[in-house]
Each structure stands twice: as structure tokens, then as C-alpha cells.
Write a protein that binds this DNA or RNA. Structure first.
Lengths: 319, 319
DNA sequence: CTGTTAGCGCATTCAC
DNA sequence: GTGAATGCGCTAACAG
């Protein structure tokens, strides 16, 4: 049993080449003859060589961790199901990179926080969520090229299409007075669903009933009550988050309104327990794991195709 | 504007001491005279010095990331609400350490995986969840002292007391035929709640009705149906996970059984949406953020008091 | 208590 | 295509 792990020097020696050559073939960059390439690979195999991630990061100057910065008014956004799920997904995606993710909250006015992050030499990349339209352009120079964004303009779900399908479904169900509990106005990602809603209601000749929410169920309760107070004949409520939808369901239950008989409800995101509530929530499911992984890879400099991720409707009991 | 960040050498030069002394005071370890300490601190302040985490980790040989390994039969345990929440909490707790967390699943038989982790020189610490009783003792030597465990024997919630309070509550509600949907038998953390249940039913002269579940709502549905088939007069179902409880609620709804009138139900953990379902779930809330932070700190070698974290009942609508 | 001397393990200039 | 130096930024061992 070897007491200490084989290093690059050991591999090089065994392969009969210099450490530089060994480094070139093992790190995949730089020229190398087929012969020495094979020798190095074989030696690495035999010695069970594993590069030392930290040394590699120091020498390469790349930093060792990804920071996931979530912008929101509330600090407890870090407990939001979407945030925890995305964080876990990044943590899983970073495993093969020998890196990890750190999580932090930043307020709506976060220029100073971003500057601080820009000065962190241990930072490999930054993933940002909760941005508004102006932020990506206002990033500190040092962060440029190593920042990815989750939501509008970055790794994003096709929320316009997703909400569109849900709204269409409600329409086909015979609903004609559909309200939307939208996301907060300061959030860039809020725009697409609202646009989709406006477009569909306009073209179908339906009234537009929009109320702002956030991503909490408490706000969903309040918003649903507001909707029914203002437009008592509402027969469907679409939302842009499951938490909001569940809050709305509670409000409706409290008002003695039957779901979906009197009012249909749709969520968005398909949180883990959306299928486990009763009535089970109709919503749209999103590949959050893939989105988070794409964001991480993009932030780390890989070129990932900038496609919108699909939003697939899941029709359960509430709509 | 300085084009490159101040390094330790710059600080030392400005403070009129050697880099070694500067390192000693800035890293907090090693002796230093009050005079040079003050000088170094002042210089660091003026230069806005930030240590380079990666260099520090390389020189110190400490590794740069924490791996959270979750042991379970299913690979999609990584999407479990508790796991994602704990992962996010660790990611947040690691921010000040300039480290990050990576997430990985390991199967029930994970000796090989642990060996592989032991060979990773970038690993600062390991946090393990889903262990059985034998695992902590069977850890590879290299992992010793830098591994912490979440659940029985490590950073754990006082689940015996927590379940005990819930059961007592059910008893005080007049329930006398209380079933328990327990955790999987291979899990060390499953033991305490079962013991508490057995103790309480025995001392109160109640029948013991135990069924095994896991942490999915699907299994909760099945288990609840099994309970009612086997003991049709059951008037309460206690569980050890909210997902299980929500599954049970669905099963009961499907059978036309009223909650809590006919059968009361309790969950465990207070997932974000437990309060947002209707009927709202009675459960116990746990400081997962603190637990995860304690696990991380412990794994990194800090001495954290080994206390059980409190389990606080939250009585809502289902019990 | 302090400075000097060596590395930590690898990537990357350069010459050859 | 290859090897010999040099450096990444800091900590740790030693001698003073």
C-alpha cells in the first residue's frame, strides 16, 4: 500500500517523459506525440493517478468554487424550494469538476455585493438568479465571462410557452375569466409569462386580470383573495409558482370555493410535493437539474447552447 | 485603481515584517507580538488584502470542498426536499470558509465509493447522511476526523422527543389506535422514533401498529392503505416524514376518510409547503439549517457541542 | 517572537 | 514535440 498518492512527477518518471509533457497530456491541452501520450496515459493508469484539484486550480488561476447568488428582497429566499433544488443540482453538477457551490443571498441593490465577489480570488464562477433586466450588463469586469444567469436571458425555462399551454388548457376547460398571479415586477423573469397571458387573453377576447405575487404561499393567499374580491366571477387562477398556487388553494378553501369546480388553479414548477397534496396540483414541470447544470457549465466557460428549457404541463386535479 | 490584488508579500512589506509573520497574524495561528500584529492588520486593512483561498488550501493541504454524500437506494434521493434543503444550508454555511459543497449519491453498499472519496485530495471534509449503525466505524482512515454525519450519532434532531410530543398530542386528542409509518429499517435514524413509539404505546396500553415507509409520498400512500386494511379502526397515523404524511393524506382522501375527523395525521420535518396544503399538515419543525451548518463545521474539524437539535411540534389542521 | 528556507502539486512560459 | 525553469500565493519547518 502506497502511503502517499502518486503525483504528476511520478507519472512522468514512469512514462519516461518530463512533468511538463505529462501535464500536457493529462490536462488535455498542448501538443504531445502519440507515443508519449500513450506512455503517460498508461503510467497514470497503473499508478492510479488523480490530479490534485487544488494545485491545479492554483497553478491555473481558476478558483475553486462556484457561488450561487440569489437576489431577492427576503433573505429567507435561500429556503425557497426552487433555490434549494437548484443549489443541490449545482452541487451535483460540480462533482466531476472537483468544485463545490457556495450559496449567498444578495439584496435587490447588490452592486456592492457583486464588487465584493469580484474581488474573491477563490471564485471560479458566479451563478446569478433573481436578476432584473439591467444587471447582466452592469456586472463588474472581473466577473464578465465567468457569470451565468438563471432566468430570463440565461439558462431559462420557456415560461411563455409553459404558461401559454396552461392557459390554453384552462380555456379548453371552458374557463373564460382567468386571472393571473404574476411574479414581482422587479424580476426579469416575470415578464415573459405576463406577456404570454396578455397575448392569449387579448386574442381570445378575455378580460385581463393580473395581480402581482412573489414566490411565497402567504402572498398567494393574499393575492387570491384580492382577485376574488375584485373580480368575483373569476373561474380560474393561473400562477407562476407552485407555492403561490398552494396559497391560492388555501384561500379558496377558506372561502368555501370548490376547486376545480368553481375555480381552477394552476401552479408552475412542479415542486416535489405538488403531486402529493390534495387536490393534487396541476402545474408545469421543469428540468431544474438540467437548468442548474447548464448554468454552472456556462459560468465555468463551457459553451452551452442557449436554448430555452421545456415547460411540460402536468394535469392533475386542480385544473 | 490597482490592477492586481495585494498579496501577502505586499502586506508584509508595508507592515515592515516578513511574509511569515504576516501569515501568522492573518491566519490567526502562531505567535506574534502586539506591535507587529497591529502593523500587519493595519497594512492589510489599507491594502484591502484578501487571502487567496486556493493558495491557502494548497499550502495548508486542506482541500477546497466539502462533499455531501447521501446514501440511499434511490439515486433521486438527491431531489428529496430534506436533501436539497440541507445541501443549500451547507452551501450557505461554507460561504465564510471560502469553500463549496458538492453533492453525490451513494448506494447502500458504498464502501468502494467511500474509498474513492478518501483518495480525493481536493476533499476538505465529508458529510454523510443515510448511514446505518455500522458505517461510521467502517470509514476509511483518511476520512477519519474529517467526516461528520447527519442523523443518528451525529448532527441530529431529537426525533424521539419530537415524535413523542406528536404522539402525546394525538393521545390527548383522544386517539387510541395510533399507527406509525416508520422509516426504512436500514437507516440508523429510523430507530429512535420507533423506540419512542413503542415506549409510549406500551406505557399507555395502546396497540402497536408499525409499517415501514421511506421518504416518498408514493410509499406513504401505499403504507397508509396497508395500515387501514390491516387495522381498519385506526384513528391516527403518525409518520416520520412530511412526504409520507402527504401521501397518507392522499390515500385517506381516496378512501373517503375525513382528516382529522376520522383519522388524524402527523408529518415530520415541516417542509416548506406543509403549511400551504389543505388541510394544513400538523408536523414538527426542525432547524435543518443549523443542523447542516453544525455538520459542516464538525466535519471541518471545529469542535461543535454534540447536542440533539430540538424538534418543535406545529399543530395545524391534520391533527 | 521573528525571519529564512522550502515546499504544496501542477501549469506554463520559453528555448531547444 | 519536448524538457528545463519559473511561478501560483501562501503556510510550515527550522534556526535564531
Amino acid at each position: 500500500m502506497r502511503t502517499t498518492r502518486a503525483g504528476l512527477a511520478d507519472v512522468a518518471r514512469r512514462a519516461g517523459v518530463s512533468p511538463a509533457t505529462a501535464s500536457r497530456v493529462l490536462s488535455g491541452s498542448g501538443p504531445a506525440s502519440p507515443a508519449s501520450r500513450a506512455a503517460v496515459l498508461a503510467a497514470a493508469e497503473q499508478l492510479d493517478y488523480r490530479p490534485h484539484p487544488v494545485a491545479r486550480q492554483l497553478a491555473g488561476g481558476s478558483g475553486s468554487r462556484v457561488v450561487f447568488a440569489v437576489r431577492d428582497e427576503r433573505a429567507d429566499i435561500l429556503r425557497d424550494p426552487f433555490v434549494t433544488r437548484a443549489t443541490a443540482a449545482m452541487a451535483a453538477a460540480l462533482l466531476p469538476y472537483a468544485m463545490g457551490v457556495a450559496l449567498r443571498h444578495v439584496g435587490l441593490d447588490c452592486a456592492a455585493d457583486l464588487d465584493e465577489l469580484a474581488g474573491d480570488r477563490g471564485l471560479a464562477a458566479l451563478v446569478l438568479a433573481g436578476h432584473d433586466r439591467a444587471m447582466p450588463a452592469a456586472l463588474p469586469p472581473r466577473l464578465r465571462g465567468r457569470t451565468a444567469v438563471i432566468g430570463a436571458g440565461g439558462a431559462d425555462v420557456d415560461s411563455a410557452a409553459g404558461v401559454g399551454v396552461l392557459l390554453t388548457h384552462l380555456y379548453l376547460l371552458g374557463r373564460r375569466r382567468i386571472a393571473l398571479i404574476a411574479g414581482p415586477a422587479w424580476l426579469a423573469a416575470s415578464a415573459a409569462p405576463v406577456a404570454a397571458y396578455r397575448e392569449l387573453t387579448r386574442s381570445a377576447g378575455l378580460p385581463a386580470r393580473i395581480v402581482r405575487g412573489d414566490f411565497t404561499s402567504a402572498r398567494g393567499r393574499v393575492a387570491a383573495r384580492a382577485v376574488l374580491r375584485r373580480w368575483p366571477d373569476t373561474d380560474a387562477i393561473a400562477t407562476v409558482s407552485d407555492a403561490t398556487a398552494l396559497g391560492a388553494l388555501q384561500a379558496l378553501a377558506g372561502l368555501g370555493i370548490r376547486v376545480p369546480d368553481d375555480v381552477a388553479v394552476t401552479g408552475f414548477d412542479d415542486v416535489p410535493l405538488a403531486s402529493a397534496v390534495s387536490p393534487a396540483l396541476s402545474t408545469a414541470t421543469h428540468p431544474v437539474e438540467e437548468i442548474a447544470a447548464a448554468a454552472v457549465r456556462s459560468a465555468l466557460g463551457e459553451v452551452v447552447p442557449v436554448t430555452l428549457f421545456p415547460s411540460s404541463p402536468v394535469f392533475r386535479a386542480t385544473a
